[in-house]
């Protein structure tokens, strides 16, 4: 699958060859393509003369990076302590059942990616789930069902 390397080049140009900005550079590529395409990493390695192994180490070390394409919609279940004691494991399990995928996976139709995070920092509202960056707090299994059963597109319309 080819990607738009010009986009990658523009990002590389923006950050230049500054080691301190390497993480930022990868963040932006990850944000632009919704994952870190291998071709993009190879490109960064060539242009910035950064060892590819180093980029691969970063890409696999940090949680915010994905090496496979993420789904159209990202569902993220917070597994922080405050959420845990208020039933986050049940919420995750329900989300897995509804979406038919396990945490860390993307649905076959490319519509959803289900992820977990170790704390989103909105602990007073636990259990907490974000859908495409939107926070949904004080959930229970029934509300998760409502949240995920309707498509996020409808959700977006409602928000507009």
């Amino acid at each position: 699958m080819g990607i738009d390397l010009e986009k990658v080049d523009r990002i590389i140009e923006k950050y230049g060859n500054d080691a301190t900005l390497c993480l930022e550079l990868l963040q932006e590529i990850n944000g632009t393509f919704r994952y870190l395409p291998r071709e993009a990493l190879v490109r960064v390695a060539e242009k910035n003369r950064t060892p590819l192994s180093q980029l691969y180490a970063m890409a696999t070390f940090y949680k915010s990076f994905n090496l496979t394409p993420r789904g159209e919609h990202e569902v993220c279940v917070c597994m922080g302590t405050a959420c845990h004691v208020r039933g986050a494991p049940r919420i995750l399990e329900r989300a897995e059942e509804i979406l038919g995928i396990r945490a860390g996976e993307t649905s076959a139709d490319g519509k959803y990616t289900l992820q977990t995070v170790n704390c989103l920092g909105a602990c007073a509202l636990g259990p907490l789930v974000t859908v495409d960056g939107q926070y949904h707090g004080k959930l229970n299994t029934a509300r998760v069902e409502k949240l995920l059963r309707r498509s996020p597109d409808e959700d977006a319309q409602e928000h507009n």
Binding site: A19, T20, L23, E24, F61, Y62, K63, F65, V117, N118
Partner: peptide, 21 residues
């Protein structure tokens, strides 16, 4: 400097490595 999602980066020396990139 934006972190990449790694708790261990709260540890001072790991944080330094992360900023140095």
């Amino acid at each position: 400097s934006r972190g990449g999602g790694a708790f261990v980066c709260g540890e001072e020396t790991a944080l330094i490595s992360s900023i140095e990139g």
